[in-house]
Design a binder for these strands. Sequence first.
DNA 1: AAACACCACAACCGCGACTGC
DNA 2: GGCAGTCGCGGTTGTGGTGTT
Length: 366
Amino acid sequence: MGKGRAPCCDKTQVKRGPWSPEEDLKLIAFIQKNGHDNWRSLPKQSGLLRCGKSCRLRWINYLRPDVKRGNFTIQEEEAIIRLHKDFGNKWSKIASCLPGRTDNEIKNVWNTHLKKRLSIQSSESSTDESKLESSITSSSSSLSESLSSNDAPNLAAKTIPSNELNEQETLETMNDKIEQHSEKQISNEVISIIEDPKELTTSLSFVESNILNSNHIVAFTPEQQLCSPLTNLEPYDADNNNTLQEVDKPNHLNEIPWDLDDDIWKMVDNFVSMQSNEVQLEGVPSNQISNPIEESVQDVETMKWFHEFDNVFGLVGETNESNKDGYLPKNYSSELGVDPQTFDLDVMESTESELDLSYIQLWLMA
DNA sequence: AAACACCACAACCGCGACTGC
DNA sequence: GGCAGTCGCGGTTGTGGTGTT
């Protein structure tokens, strides 16, 4: 009694504050290999000087493969407003209805933009409450028109994806779900939209905007950008092992290129470009590389990079058996003519050039 | 160019919920 | 049922970036 709650960790022994790219990569590599069954023990096992809570937060809010980054679209903002009306500050519930968005992100957007916007609106239309209701349920154009002049610059600065029409369609579908006023129905059905391959084209717009915002896209040719990796997605197979998916939380959305921060992608891109000059994947003549194989090769290169990185940062030990095959996704392996059962990273590694550790150090210092 | 104010967002903190023993 | 360990949520804070004076 009187001692209060025990701290989750010894604060003097852990690093706090912003995460460095090195820490991010360490965490990513560890989770790719081992998953995150136990956040508390994860820092110790991965060699991170962070508390488990901090690792969890960083992964969920920032590093997770399916996290969607970039500005919220008007449609998403509308959805948040409506969901907040239904659920209040239940950010995780709201987030579950917005694929790729985290509760923290939604909370921030609400506190910094939407709350202010609504308070301005409500003060302007305090004599007519139905005005607020109509602004919430109206189309995006009417919403933007109803905004006060104070918000206009912000709105203009928003990134409107080129695939807005698709996104509009998705949001309309989502709004239909929201209107049913059943939490469970909302989350289940929205998820089913995402997971049902037959409806994949509808959900793709959500994720594609993520890709378009990602630095990773700079590695693609214009042709590849027109035909995003997602358009080549196979229907999701529950047994599909994919290194780019969260290990203990299968989700085909995770097949998308990661949307990490600039530093990390710079590092990845630098490494991939350097390595691809030296490494030619066996059995795939360079002049025959085309979509989607070329993309697959790039992803495989990235996976190689992670493997190399894994060695560099001393995350030694056996690859978790359940994840071992995950380095080469099934759909990639068929396209590349590589048998996933026999594909061996160690063999692959031995055929590659030696990794110059100074590169890593230079990137980390950059 | 410097100082200041404001904003956005990543990260932290504390608590309740959940789970396994 | 009680307890301890862990997870997840929501509120809050800290910090870096940007705009303004």
